[in-house]
């Protein structure tokens, strides 16, 4: 690890929803809240949280598919939101995304080869013949056969479609790949194939991953560091082993307790898992209504993400004492 590839500073994203047709009052959804985060070159940063916690919004902000309400994202020291059209294009060459839904993220009218070639065409890289060669080379790399090059996406299985998605992201030689739930829609035997492939590619192409998932088992397998998100905020950020062996935040504990263990003799106690992720607290800690360690201060003061030790950060008043 050397130097931050991506540096996120005080990032906020709010969406306004009109609460009903007749009222002019707007409801504000704070999808991403005061996020400070660094992604270092060569690491896999796992991002975990329940649905609606802002994981995907953050991914879209990093790729500049969304504009933030406030805050900065620096890529190698340059503010990505100040990029002009040309700079943005070259930024996007370096930051690619793999999507969850393999049906809707591939164009049904394009063959596998054309799908993988398209980014090269858009970025006007190489000649026609070289593009074809490059695409075929990447296809082989992700485990697709040459004979499959001219098939359309509906002729592939879910796992193979995800391979196409990975190849398309890889063909531009990006530095950072944002994988947004890349294995969530796949069967477990296929999931393992894709996870191994991503691991290989990281080594071969010297990639950095931001790996987003709701599945703590998958996150544990792939990540170096893990960020836990809750209602738009990062509540804990630590090394992989620390998260699992020494969870600091009560929410991390709850998540870990909720994962069903694959050992039928170890039935889990689930007494402390209650409530749902809903922003119903006006002030104080957003997690207080589900937390079993709540004290007085939690109802008044919202905790910030603070340094706990060298590698760990936690947003909890009780961090370390529970």
């Amino acid at each position: 690890m050397s130097g931050a590839l991506i540096e996120i500073k005080d990032l906020n994203k709010k969406y306004a929803l009109s609460s009903s047709f007749f009222s002019s009052q707007k409801r504000i959804i704070h999808a991403v809240k005061d996020i400070d985060l660094q992604i270092f070159k060569g690491e896999t940063l796992g991002m975990v949280g329940e649905s609606g916690c802002g994981k995907s919004t953050l991914a879209r902000l990093i790729t500049r598919l969304e504009e933030p309400s406030s805050g900065r994202i620096n890529f190698k020291g340059e503010d990505v939101f100040l990029y002009d059209k040309q700079e943005l294009k070259s930024y996007r060459r370096n930051v690619q995304i793999i999507f969850q839904d393999t049906y809707s993220s591939l164009n049904p009218r394009k063959s596998a080869l054309n799908t993988i070639k398209e980014p090269l065409l858009i970025h006007r890289l190489n000649g026609k013949k070289e593009r074809e060669e490059k695409a075929l080379e990447i296809m082989a790399k992700v485990g697709l056969k040459k004979e499959q090059a001219n098939r359309y996406s509906h002729e592939f299985s879910g796992g193979q479609r995800q391979r196409i998605g990975i190849a398309r992201a890889l063909v531009l030689n990006p530095e950072l790949i944002i994988a947004d739930e890349p294995v969530s829609s796949l069967d477990v035997s296929i999931q393992a194939q894709i996870l191994n492939l991503l691991k290989d590619l990281k080594k071969d192409y010297n990639l950095t991953y931001l790996f987003i998932s709701h599945d703590l088992n998958v996150i544990r397998y792939v990540s170096d560091r893990i960020a836990v998100m809750y209602l738009g905020k990062i509540v804990e950020l630590a090394q992989n082993n620390d998260i699992y062996n020494r969870p600091l935040h009560p929410y991390t504990r709850m998540l870990l307790a909720a994962v069903p263990s694959c050992d039928p003799r170890k039935k889990k106690e689930i007494i402390n898992i209650k409530g749902e992720a809903r922003a119903e607290n006006k002030e104080g800690c957003p997690f207080q209504n589900r937390c079993s360690y709540r004290v007085e201060i939690c109802e008044k003061v919202e905790p910030n993400l603070e340094k706990y030790d060298e590698h760990s950060f936690c947003a909890c008043h009780m961090a370390g004492s529970i």
Partner: peptide, 19 residues
């Protein structure tokens, strides 16, 4: 194929077994 079951092996950097 379930990552949680094979942690002991995975921590040594081994791969997940697949079908």
């Amino acid at each position: 194929s379930v990552p949680a079951r094979c942690l002991k092996y995975l921590e040594r950097g081994e791969y997940l077994k697949t079908i």
